[in-house]
Simulated scan of single mutants.
Amino acid sequence: MGDRLFDRQRTVHEILGGGLVADVILWRQKNLTLGILMVTFAAWVVFEGSGYTLLSLVSSVLLLLFAILFIWAKSAAVLNR
């Protein structure tokens, strides 16, 4: 019963859902967990270095998407498609 938290009926792995997310949180899949941490750290370094925020990035991407969709729709109307 050493794998149970405070002598509960269910293990911590079962409480966390028992799937891939629980494996990552509990470091059972060390390579995947380390990869997620490295990508998160790299994104943090890029955002800190550039002075950009997540909100401004999302806003810029959405503005670009809307501009592309607008141009696409107008060109389809002009070309009768």
Rank of each mutant, 00 (worst) to 15 (best):
M1A: 04
M1R: 10
F6C: 06
F6N: 10
D7Y: 05
R8P: 02
R8Y: 04
Q9V: 08
Q9G: 11
Q9R: 11
R10M: 06
R10Y: 07
R10L: 08
T11S: 05
V12K: 12
V12P: 01
V12H: 06
H13N: 06
I15S: 03
L16A: 02
G17Y: 01
G17A: 00
G18D: 01
V21T: 14
A22E: 07
A22I: 05
D23C: 08
V24N: 04
I25A: 15
W27L: 13
W27T: 06
W27H: 14
W27N: 14
R28Y: 03
R28N: 14
R28D: 07
Q29I: 14
K30F: 09
L32M: 13
T33Y: 10
T33G: 15
I36Y: 09
L37A: 13
L37R: 15
V39N: 05
V39K: 13
T40R: 10
T40E: 08
T40S: 14
T40I: 12
F41E: 03
F41Q: 04
A42L: 15
A42M: 13
A42H: 08
A42K: 11
A43F: 13
A43L: 14
V46D: 00
F47H: 11
F47A: 14
F47R: 11
E48P: 00
E48T: 06
G49N: 04
G49C: 03
G49S: 08
S50H: 01
G51P: 06
G51F: 12
Y52M: 15
Y52A: 14
T53H: 07
T53C: 02
T53W: 08
L54T: 12
L54I: 14
S56D: 05
S56K: 14
S56E: 15
L57S: 09
L57M: 07
V58M: 09
V58L: 11
S59Y: 10
S59V: 09
S60G: 15
V61P: 00
V61G: 00
V61A: 09
L63P: 00
L63N: 02
L64E: 00
L65W: 09
F66K: 03
F66D: 06
I68F: 11
F70W: 12
F70S: 10
I71N: 07
W72N: 01
W72D: 01
A73Y: 01
K74N: 05
K74V: 15
S75F: 00
S75M: 04
S75K: 02
S75I: 07
A76E: 13
A77G: 08
A77V: 04
A77N: 11
V78Y: 01
L79H: 04
L79N: 06
N80L: 07
R81K: 12
R81V: 13
